Amino acid sequence: MYEIIQKLHSWWAYLAIVLLCIAVINSIIGFVSKKEYKNADKKLGLYALGAIHTQIIIGLLVYFVSPLGLSGFSMKDSALRLTSMEHPLINIIGIVLITIGWVKHKKLTSSESKFKTLAIFYGIGLLLILSRVPWGLWFK
């Protein structure tokens, strides 16, 4: 069961990261070109938010059914520390920032401020997430 959930977590990450990248790029383009914030822009941000929230739920399942359990908190092995501590913690922080950006942008009225808020919060969240992807394990 663990292997199935872990594979799902890895494959869903592709979708979540692609949607997040598209949402960030769309927000930057919308901000720079001063275009009108439309329903399609809102849907794109919402799909990215939903995909990344689904990813964290799957990730938490992986974390708690992992055969390593709490033994992953060893500070001696950097690969184990990355997957057991750094990856979950930094990704949770990134997802919290993405969620804050979504909530903040809904309260704004101008298109420019909506795009700017999404670009900043989604962008920082994306950078944090990408910084702690265990790339060496992902492509095995």
Results as ranks from 00 to 15, higher is better:
2 Y>M: 08
2 Y>L: 06
4 I>H: 14
4 I>L: 11
6 Q>A: 15
6 Q>S: 13
6 Q>P: 00
7 K>M: 10
7 K>L: 13
7 K>C: 08
8 L>F: 07
9 H>D: 12
11 W>D: 14
11 W>I: 14
12 W>K: 09
15 L>S: 14
15 L>K: 09
16 A>V: 05
17 I>V: 15
17 I>E: 15
18 V>K: 13
18 V>F: 13
20 L>E: 15
20 L>N: 15
20 L>S: 15
22 I>A: 15
26 N>V: 10
27 S>A: 09
27 S>R: 02
28 I>C: 10
29 I>P: 05
31 F>Y: 14
31 F>C: 11
32 V>Q: 03
32 V>S: 03
34 K>I: 03
34 K>T: 09
36 E>Y: 13
36 E>H: 15
37 Y>G: 01
37 Y>E: 11
37 Y>M: 10
38 K>D: 10
39 N>A: 14
39 N>W: 11
39 N>K: 12
40 A>M: 11
43 K>Y: 03
44 L>E: 00
46 L>A: 15
46 L>M: 14
46 L>D: 14
46 L>N: 13
48 A>L: 00
48 A>W: 02
49 L>I: 05
50 G>F: 08
55 Q>L: 09
56 I>C: 02
57 I>Y: 07
57 I>W: 07
58 I>G: 08
59 G>P: 00
64 F>W: 03
64 F>E: 01
65 V>A: 03
67 P>C: 00
67 P>I: 01
69 G>L: 01
70 L>N: 01
71 S>N: 00
72 G>C: 05
73 F>L: 01
74 S>F: 01
74 S>A: 08
75 M>Y: 07
75 M>W: 06
75 M>V: 09
76 K>A: 03
78 S>G: 08
79 A>Y: 08
81 R>Y: 11
82 L>Y: 11
83 T>Q: 06
83 T>K: 09
85 M>L: 06
88 P>Y: 02
88 P>H: 01
89 L>S: 04
89 L>I: 06
90 I>N: 04
91 N>V: 08
92 I>N: 00
94 G>T: 14
95 I>M: 07
97 L>T: 06
97 L>D: 02
97 L>Q: 07
98 I>Q: 09
98 I>S: 12
102 W>T: 04
103 V>Q: 10
104 K>H: 06
105 H>Q: 15
105 H>M: 15
106 K>H: 11
110 S>Y: 05
113 S>Q: 12
113 S>T: 12
114 K>G: 00
115 F>S: 05
116 K>M: 01
118 L>C: 08
118 L>D: 08
122 Y>H: 14
122 Y>I: 10
122 Y>E: 06
123 G>M: 12
123 G>F: 12
125 G>H: 05
126 L>S: 04
128 L>H: 03
129 I>E: 09
130 L>N: 12
131 S>N: 13
132 R>F: 02
132 R>I: 06
136 G>D: 13
